[in-house]
Design a protein around this nucleic acid. Structure first.
Lengths: 145, 145
DNA sequence: TCTAAATCAGATTATTTTATCTGGTTAAAG
DNA sequence: CTTTAACCAGATAAAATAATCTGATTTAGA
């Protein structure tokens, strides 16, 4: 099998989208996120810790604690989450795994893949959490089915 | 880090491109492929065996044996190699890892990602080994640098 | 015929990724 | 002040991927 984002990154994206779909500033526990998204709790907790270190979300300790977005959802782009978890290597390394793939020594797919990759990068840069709120709410509503 | 194709698939693509860059019908040993592409020999051997089972390449045993394309390079598409090694799951599973991602219950990126994914699929379907021969030769020429 | 060079098949090892566990710290609420 | 529900930190385990090893078989050529 092949992958675009690591599981960590997929879960991280799901989690921040979930946070954004709740009220702004709302605090949500890792337990709730894990249950609603069907993600292993311990795993998502670790990911949420990472995102807290990255400054994308805030954490509140102690009883009735949990996580909330660190910025307004209009100011959190999907690419920020990807960069924090998987890094941006996917947008620069050679799709065929050739070394030194560059305009000077391009791999056979350099141009064609580069164009697609740029489109993907731009899309992830344009899409912010607030723009996806409605769609996220719809998706979440159908998760138990 | 994140990945598009598995290492197996990257190496497999490199290997068939290499075979196509050599004369049609030419036989190349796993050893040569491994050395030229800087791929672990035992690993690429296994991959070449897989591609032989898939009918993409032929193998010849014994002394002066090796591998050659099973069809004319104009009839081998990159998507064929990807399908044989990684499968086509990447073109159907949800980029965010949500379950049941479909037109009925789309994830927040369903449409936008779907468009990009289709472009990628089409590109890999259109590109055949012969079309990439010149570019492959150029890339190979600069691999030792 | 014998040897060398190659593929083939299956097992094994190493590394990375994914997931879990254990115990500690924090803080709200009674 | 004590309990409880949460995050936190680091270790560990499990699974998947990447890589290697061992020995067998095949075949061209001296």
């Amino acid at each position: 099998m092949t992958v675009i984002f690591s599981k960590k990154c997929e879960y991280g994206l799901q989690a921040v989208l979930y946070l954004a779909a709740k009220e702004v500033g709302g605090i949500v526990s890792a337990d709730e996120i894990a249950k609603k998204l069907n993600i292993p709790k311990e795993f998502v907790s670790k990911i949420l810790q990472n995102l807290t270190e990255s400054g994308i979300i805030n954490s509140k300790k102690g009883k009735s604690g949990g996580f909330s977005l660190a910025k307004h959802p209009a100011n959190i782009r999907l690419i920020d989450v990807v960069a924090a978890i998987d890094g941006l290597g996917i947008f620069s390394t050679c799709v065929l795994g050739f070394p030194n793939c560059s305009p000077d020594h391009p791999c056979p797919l350099h141009e064609k893949w580069g164009a697609l990759r740029t489109s993907a990068y731009n899309m992830l840069t344009e899409q912010t959490l607030d723009q996806l709120k409605e769609k996220t709410l719809h998706k979440i509503a159908h998760l138990e089915a």
